[in-house]
Design a protein around this nucleic acid. Structure first.
Lengths: 238, 238
DNA sequence: AAAAAAATATGATATTTGTCACCTAAGTAG
DNA sequence: CTACTTAGGTGACAAATATCATATTTTTTT
């Protein structure tokens, strides 16, 4: 855990990469994409490895081709809070690049990941010269800010039980389910507790309580939502 | 509570207004300031009045000349969470303008306020044509996002007691104290509980507990920090 | 000034959540 | 395979926080 990535991979062409359609990179034209192809590097990241850590100065952004990572922040009391998940199609690192500050969160893979790294100079050039790209990036950041405000309210006003129910529903919505309906994201109990902001033991109890009440089915680490309606009611506070 | 503002005031010239130095507006040149002077409107806002409410579409930004307002969000369970305070020199509404969405928070005066309203068209024109202004606005938004991430962690990982101690210290730092060392912001117990995210009764108990232990002195609504070192220790979790 | 309304305060009690100790199952390195 | 390590799980209990009822004080309205 915590090792920085090094592994380099075969490079594909950005022009042909579908993943860019999911992010602000969709605003780039052919010339810009070709320029990007030439300066980007591709990496594979193993589960548990960090793309960057709180306090790092990164000099570029990551474009996620596959896999999922968690953005975490260490609280003064030593616990790790998961603030957000980043997945295929997302960009990572824009905020720090634009405001020219150290990153305030660590990014750790919870999956095997494939990512491309686009150097700062190139990104900032697009940012300054391509007003459509500029607007898309800013919209993303504004959206993140809105989500963060929502999260503050959620944390401050909802019980752990409500937050857990909400988190499970979000996992389903954001990452989907496999053929057997199990959530695709595979998180340890500790990681889930770091999303919800509670003690691991409390979380485990609540999970088995939800199972007892027929809202979930678990199979080892795997979790399946068995009664969405009821889980939604719990998330709303009933 | 909740009435929209109407009162118009005498207009000053933006060129001569010191307050603009505190925000992104400092990036505007003389011509731009004169143009702004001609299209802005000045308003006075009474305590308890809303500048806008969650869900509104605002078509401009506010520049705060004096006074303080709270940004609040109604949680599904009917409680009001205070997410942030806005004070003299701050701009308000940029995010919604730029991302062209409804505002996600309500802004309610906790003080008598004087504000100027600058219409959307003008702001967006500066935003598009003045790259320094553009950069300043974006930096502000990025900074807000960073603060919001911090707040999520704080809410999720700290106890109510820690959060209260932290909030009081922030009140002192952000708004200062009067000649007798009392905090300048005057919030009701309910408002403080809406900052910290707890029940009003619990908050009152904690305040008097802090007083009993010599960390605070209270006089009606007024609060004075009597032992900062100790309060800081509590905020850190000791 | 009196009455009404709102804010502050306190007690009793229930509920939620955390902590510690410990145990079992599962995965991993030698 | 076996020892070791880590994650998952449970019980007992303590601490934190919410809730409800009810004073008391302050503010506002009449």
């Amino acid at each position: 855990m915590g090792r920085q990535i090094k592994r380099l991979c075969v490079m594909g062409k950005c022009e042909q990469c579908i993943v860019r359609q999911f992010s602000a990179l969709r605003a780039l034209d052919k010339d810009e994409l070709m320029r990007m192809s030439n300066c980007k590097t591709s990496h594979s990241v193993k589960k548990g490895e960090a793309l960057f850590e709180e306090g790092d100065h990164i000099n570029g952004v990551f474009c996620i081709k596959s896999g999922i990572c968690k953005l975490t922040k260490l609280s003064p009391n030593g616990k790790n809070q998961i603030v957000k998940f980043i997945k295929r199609g997302d960009l990572l690192g824009q905020r720090s690049l634009i405001s020219d500050e150290a990153v305030n969160l660590s990014a750790v893979a919870i999956d095997e990941m494939e990512v491309c790294f686009i150097p700062k100079e190139e990104v900032m050039r697009f940012f300054k010269e391509n007003s459509k790209f500029n607007a898309e990036i800013i919209k993303d950041i504004c959206h993140d800010l809105k989500l963060a405000d929502d999260a503050i309210v959620e944390m401050a006003q909802k019980s752990v039980k409500q937050r857990l129910a909400g988190a499970l529903l979000e996992f389903e919505e954001e990452f989907g389910v496999d053929k057997e309906q199990y959530l695709k994201v595979s998180l340890s109990r500790e990681e889930i507790s770091n999303v919800v902001g509670t003690a691991t033991e409390s979380l485990i109890r609540m999970l088995s309580d939800f199972s007892k009440k027929g809202m979930l089915e678990t199979n080892g680490k795997k979790i399946k939502i068995a009664n969405r309606t009821e889980l939604e009611r719990v998330a709303e506070g009933f």
